[in-house]
Amino acid sequence: MTLDVRHIAVLLCFLLSFQASATVDVVIDTHAAHAVLDALQNPNLSLADAKRIAQLPANQGPIRKLREFKIDVTEDDLAHALFATAHGQPVTKKEEAAFLLDWMKPKIAGANALLAKIDADPAGFQGAIRKRIDAYTPPGTTVTLKGYVVAVGDGGGYAFGDTDFYLNLVMTDDFAMARSVTTHEMYHAVQGVFTASRIPKGQDEDASTACRAVRRLFDDVYREGTAVEVADVSLMAQFKSANSLRQKTDMDDGARHMAMSAALLEMSVVALEAKPAVAYDDVYDVGFFGHAVLYNISYAMARAIAQADGPAGLASFLNRPAYAFIQRYTELPSYGSDDQHPRLGAHTLAALRMESAGCP
């Protein structure tokens, strides 16, 4: 069977053929990104065609992500935004503007060039990613992942706790950044396979509301910190675009103010345990969106564990409760030794003890 990489998902079966230890099978679908970029350059685009593009499976990811950002968008909003932008008309409705097509349109040439590199040599794009993912995945694991490249909405890359992940060209306009984001989100998809092992079914129902909320926080700390480590921060030295350099600046600034990130983790625990408690979504938004300050302490933990126990040691937390990840950090000789290994706050440590002992 012949696959047209422009219109059909690229099945990266080489992942299983390189060596026996390979465990990850990946399909990357670039069709939705091509469809949007072509539509934006078509002054004769019909609303019916715009609606068909909005209904593509890949474009359901950006819609879902914007809803996470508390913007109640629909397929029709995407279709009307695409139609208006293609015809040079202003997009004024909040829900339609949220797809950021006015940002995407001036960057079409660069986005097409990036897509061409991915389409022309999918094995080359994925080779280093596969090796990195394999190193942080337990031997014998078999995982099939579906990746979508999209060109609408906010967020450079994301996953939703299952085996799908998304790379967004609106925010990811640099090849090295695309590799980094893809690795990060691909590992989130791997983590999704093990979610039931980290949080067994029924466990949350047996815990108090505060305990469940803190458990979610600890799991997000584990997931994001580990995904940053797996994505390989050293790739940031190759970043060139304005978007990618902004991400690098945030990472560099976070390293200089690691204690502030640990303090925000402490305040997050306090907020979730307060009576009345702060809503989990609000705590998450403050910590993991925008400049994403909680990523810093999360990554510091993952990096310290990987340095002490190796990639296999970090991989072992895929199927263990998230509190065990944080607990291991506090057991390391490097814990509290310098500003890159800050001590955790009293409330965070108390919550850690509560989680490890079993929530009331």
Rank of each mutant, 00 (worst) to 15 (best):
M236T: 12
I8A: 14
M267I: 04
D162H: 12
G161P: 09
D220W: 09
F317N: 01
G61I: 04
S241E: 05
P276K: 01
Y299G: 05
V293Y: 07
E68V: 09
V152C: 13
L12Y: 10
M236D: 06
R179P: 02
A111G: 07
V230F: 05
V190W: 00
P43D: 10
G61Y: 02
V181G: 03
D29T: 08
I108S: 03
H347N: 12
F194T: 00
F165S: 04
D162T: 11
K65V: 03
Q41Y: 02
A210L: 10
L294W: 02
R179W: 00
R212D: 00
V269K: 02
D281F: 06
R215D: 07
P43Q: 03
A255G: 13
T226M: 14
H7N: 14
V230P: 03
L245Y: 04
K65C: 00
D77A: 09
L114N: 10
V170F: 06
H7G: 07
T330E: 02
A351K: 03
I108Q: 08
H31Y: 11
R179Y: 05
E229T: 13
V214G: 08
F288Y: 15
M258F: 04
I8N: 07
A279I: 10
N42E: 08
D29N: 15
V278F: 05
V27E: 10
A274G: 08
A189Q: 05
A274Q: 13
H347A: 11
A58N: 09
F239S: 11
M260A: 12
A48Y: 07
D252Y: 07
L101I: 02
Q126G: 06
S356P: 01
M236V: 06
Y329E: 12
F218H: 14
C13R: 13
L12Q: 06
D4Q: 13
D25C: 09
I129N: 08
E355A: 14
A86M: 01
E224Q: 13
I297P: 00
V181N: 03
A135R: 09
S208R: 06
D285R: 13
G161L: 09
P333W: 13
L15I: 07
F125P: 02
D119V: 14
E205S: 15
L344R: 01
E95S: 10
L294H: 07
R343S: 10
V228M: 14
L349P: 03
T30K: 00
H34C: 04
L56A: 09
S46D: 12
T142H: 11
A109V: 12
A50G: 04
G124M: 07
G202S: 03
D282K: 12
F18A: 11
R353E: 14
E68P: 01
A350I: 02
Q340W: 05
A109Y: 09
Q203T: 15
L349C: 03
D164S: 06
G254S: 04
V10E: 07
K275G: 05
D72A: 15
A9V: 06
A35F: 04
T172M: 12
S316T: 01
G147V: 11
T2M: 11
Y222P: 08
N59L: 15
I305L: 08
A259K: 13
G161C: 11
L294Q: 10
